[in-house]
Simulated assay, not measured.
Amino acid sequence: MSEKPIARLAVIGLGMATRPHLDALEQLRGTVAVSGVFNRSPAKAEAVARQFGFAVFDSLEAIAADPATDGIILATPPNQRAEIVAMMTAAGKHILMEKPLERTLHAAQDIVTRCETAGVTLGVVFQHRFRAAALRLRELVNDGSLGELALVRAEIPWWRDQAYYDVPGRGTLERDGGGVLISQAIHVLDLMLSLTAPAQSVQAMTATTAMHEMETEDFATAGLRFANQAVGSVVATTATYPGAIESLVLDGTKGTAVLKGGALHVCWHDGTREELGEPSGTGGGADPMAFPCDWHRDLILDFAQAIQTGRPPAITGREALRVHALIDAITRSARTGKQVEVQKV
């Protein structure tokens, strides 16, 4: 007889972003159960249910009322989150939410506060943190191997064609809350902030290039100063054809670590080197979902174990507010042309 699953999750929203979630849940079958799926398009829900052998919920209310559902994976567009979060927290359902939490820092803070007040677990899908190379880099930072962090460089040279932005609502303030910063670069920026001191101030500019017709930015660059007085830079775009692998470089007083996709290269000041992983894609090219589901699998398993044990998940909603605050600061600085302080969260 198989063991009882450690958690039963419902999946809400079945757009492009759920592909790795569904594949990961298939790998976790028996450990993490799927109580059912829901989508605004019943036909889409039925198709996914047939493919994976899941049940279908006919309403959000049915999920909230289901005693067998411990929590949800919420993968709707950002502008649909608040109402669903209100319903699920009232029902005591734990929430694993696709990035971003919401369209603005203030709205994201409201979601985090609501979940904390209700006593439900809120996890956020920043799967880049679960790559083996990123985990090794975290070890090197935490144990002091790199020395004092002096300089940070993040580069996201991705590509999205015009058809991507022709999808109704995509790249708009009303649905997504922004462009490349909140929809694509947010992953690398979150990973960066998980390895550095808090970002303190920003000087930035954003633009929409000739590559796209869209409401929001497809290019952003910023100079950063961190709380420990380290400095850094960010360049993010979806206008670089055909798209390249993103990179994060940490320059410490004892060594320099270069994380490029799933590969880590470390050059120590004593002349020795360390390499780990391969520069696997993370969705920077024409297919935004061209990456394995392993990182989602480990993240979902961590969230399920957090529900089971009562501990916080690896990436909490409160922690995710840091990257929202940074994106807010970059946007404000670009709008005013001035250096701005990053709001403390």
Results as ranks from 00 to 15, higher is better:
S247N: 02
T104A: 04
L140P: 03
G281E: 13
V167I: 14
L195Y: 07
A320K: 01
L299E: 15
R160M: 05
G317Q: 11
F130V: 05
R225G: 00
R138S: 14
I12C: 11
A7W: 10
Y165S: 02
A45W: 08
R129C: 13
A230W: 10
V345S: 06
V249L: 12
D70V: 10
G30L: 09
R114I: 10
A320F: 08
E275T: 14
A263H: 10
G252S: 11
K4M: 12
I330G: 00
F57E: 06
I307K: 03
W268Y: 15
G310K: 05
P292E: 14
D298F: 11
P168R: 11
F226R: 01
G284D: 13
R40C: 03
A320M: 05
A163Y: 00
T69W: 10
M205V: 03
T209A: 02
I327N: 01
P100F: 09
N79D: 15
A65P: 00
G283D: 09
Q51F: 03
L195V: 09
E217H: 00
F130G: 02
R322C: 06
G232S: 06
S280I: 13
I245C: 07
R318N: 08
K254V: 09
T208W: 00
V32L: 03
M214S: 02
G281Y: 04
A118W: 04
T216N: 00
P5F: 13
M211N: 10
S183N: 06
R40K: 07
V34F: 06
Q200F: 06
N228H: 12
A185P: 01
A134I: 04
P157Y: 05
